[in-house]
């Protein structure tokens, strides 16, 4: 289970963008999170990926209560969650080749020996050709780079995937291809998914259920900015 309970989060010097939000994702479940710009859905995704410390509330990953965020989170917990961001250009180190981008998590975890086997497998699973792997980010298109970013997120076989607006810069065909790659990974491993998007058609199609985060998070206690008791439906 990935459990986010009573989260209040924001950025210094500003009112919290997220108030008392609750969300629970079961293993193998795909949950879509939608809402207008500025409602805090990306912040929620960052908290769920253990990249942003909430002001209040708890995150529990597979029964382990999280006490530290970013580097302070234990590595075993951090690597249970794969994350893909909105802008591929910002998400890949411009100095690395795509092969290095994808293999980086393996190398960072002392699993260098697996790279020769896993790299072709990972790149094939997201539809990247070998020739593209030798290039640097500025030599490929947004869609190709986002495929590499997804492959990187899958490299450690995470139990959970957080996709924050993964496809909103991409065309319909690349969107469908990336969602297909995520789904075939989930079918194989049974991983859970939190997909953030403002495209409700996409989320309805992709996810088991969709949760709406209301705009104007700063509001009366409880309801506003919370995913807890707002219109939740199952598709």
């Amino acid at each position: 289970m990935l459990e986010l309970a009573h989260l209040t989060a924001g950025y210094p010097g500003r009112p919290p963008v997220l108030r008392d939000a609750c969300l629970t994702i079961a293993p193998g479940e795909a949950v879509g999170l939608q809402g207008p710009s500025g409602c805090g859905k990306s912040t929620l995704a960052r908290v769920a990926a253990l990249l942003h410390r909430p002001d209040h509330g708890t995150v529990t990953v597979d029964g382990h209560r999280v006490h530290g965020w970013r580097h302070r989170a234990p590595r075993s917990l951090r690597t249970r969650i794969g994350v893909v961001f909105q802008q591929p250009r910002q998400s890949a180190d411009p100095r690395l080749t795509l092969a290095d981008v994808i293999a980086e998590p393996l190398r960072a975890n002392g699993r260098r020996a697996e790279v020769p086997d896993r790299l072709p497998e990972l790149s094939r699973s997201v539809g990247l050709t070998d020739e593209l792997l030798t290039r640097r980010p500025h030599e490929v298109s947004d869609g190709q780079l986002q495929r590499a970013c997804l492959a990187r997120a899958l490299a450690l076989e995470p139990r959970w995937l957080v996709c924050d607006e993964m496809t909103s810069m991409l065309d319909a065909s690349t969107t469908a291809a990336l969602v297909g790659a995520v789904e075939s990974y989930r079918t194989r491993t049974g991983a859970g998914l939190l997909a953030v998007s403002h495209d409700d058609e996409l989320l309805t199609r992709w996810c088991d259920r969709t949760v709406t985060l209301a705009a104007g998070a700063a509001g009366s206690a409880g309801a506003a900015g919370s995913a807890k008791d707002l219109d939740t439906w199952t598709s």
């Binding site: 253990l50 970013r70 998400s91 960072a108 970013c149």
Partner: peptide, 24 residues
């Protein structure tokens, strides 16, 4: 975001510094 992705991928502070920050 690429540093965040590295954190999420289990990189230590040292590795992020050597691999991503210093070369930049």
């Amino acid at each position: 975001p690429y540093v965040e992705a590295a954190i999420s991928g289990g990189s230590t502070r040292w590795r992020i510094a050597v691999r991503h920050l210093v070369p930049a």
